[in-house]
């Protein structure tokens, strides 16, 4: 589904990703771990189409097609979703308005009829329960005054509504208490299917207690320096990243 080869990305002229390779198949869950500043968010944003990040080499293929020519919205229409590490606030725009617009943009893209306000409300109320958010969140401005945890839950709400084929979660677990973590894990697990893939960017093994990954990768110095099964995450939890960096010669 997703195939990244020798990806090199510059941000403001600085080289951040330096030859990254990653293969994700439909039905799989991949965890990407790594020290701060190693380029995890950069990778996530590049996949979503952030134009400020320049691809200087390599390629990204999604369903076999070159992704780099697609605009962010076209990627969304093709089923790619990014849950942001830092979701932005949009004053004056009610959450429900954005959610409905996003859902209908996705529906239009796949030739499905748009949902009207009543139908949408019924759908969104169901999903709200899954992320344990009160209805009042629908009528507040997007992310405005939301706590860190509420913002993350709102991202998962969007994930549940949009049902993407490739979902990238950038540190959605950071700063959450254990109950919120479970909610997010439940959300992800409820969507797991043979047609869908997940890329989870995370710092902590504990998310992976609830979402069992097929593969775990360590991103350091702008490259994937080690890949393994779920047990790699446990090892990282115990030993930190230093030993891998030492072994592979990748300075963070």
């Amino acid at each position: 589904m997703l195939s990244i080869k020798n990806l090199k990305v510059n941000v403001d002229g600085k080289s951040i990703l330096q030859g990254l390779d990653l293969e994700v198949k439909a039905g799989e869950v991949h965890a990407i771990m790594g020290p701060n500043g190693s380029g995890k968010s950069t990778l996530a944003q590049v996949l979503a189409g952030q134009e400020q990040f320049r691809i200087v080499d390599g390629e990204i293929r999604y369903d076999g097609n070159d992704l780099s020519t697609l605009k962010p919205e076209q990627r969304a229409h093709a089923g790619i979703f990014l849950a942001f590490q830092y979701p932005v606030e949009i004053p004056g725009v009610s959450n429900i308005y954005l959610l409905k617009a996003a859902v209908n943009a996705a529906r239009r893209a796949r030739g499905a009829p748009e949902l009207d306000a009543m139908d949408f409300l019924a759908v969104v109320k169901e999903k709200l329960k899954l992320v344990d958010m009160p209805e009042t969140f629908l009528y507040r401005a997007v992310n405005e005054g939301f706590s860190g945890g509420e913002k993350k839950r709102n991202e998962i709400l969007q994930l549940l509504l949009l049902e993407p084929r490739l979902a990238i979660l950038d540190e959605t677990d950071s700063g959450l208490d254990i109950d919120a973590l479970k909610i997010i894990a439940n959300g992800v697990n409820s969507l797991r299917s043979a047609q869908r893939a997940f890329v989870l960017v995370t710092h902590y093994q504990r998310l992976l207690d609830y979402i069992k990954p097929d593969r775990v990768h360590v991103l350091a110095g702008g490259r994937i320096v080690r890949s393994g099964g779920a047990e790699l995450a446990l090892e990282l939890e115990e030993r930190g990243y230093g030993w891998i960096e030492a072994e592979t010669g990748a300075g963070a």
């Binding site: 979503a48 189409g49 952030q50 134009e51 605009k71 962010p72 919205e73 990627r75 969304a76 229409h77 979703f81 990014l82 942001f84 979701p87 932005v88 949009i90 954005l98 617009a101 996003a102 943009a105 996705a106 893209a109 969007q158 949009l162």
Partner: peptide
Amino acid sequence: DQLFYLRTRGMSE
């Protein structure tokens, strides 16, 4: 950032 966020939600610029 606001524009990018909305575009990743399927909205045109």
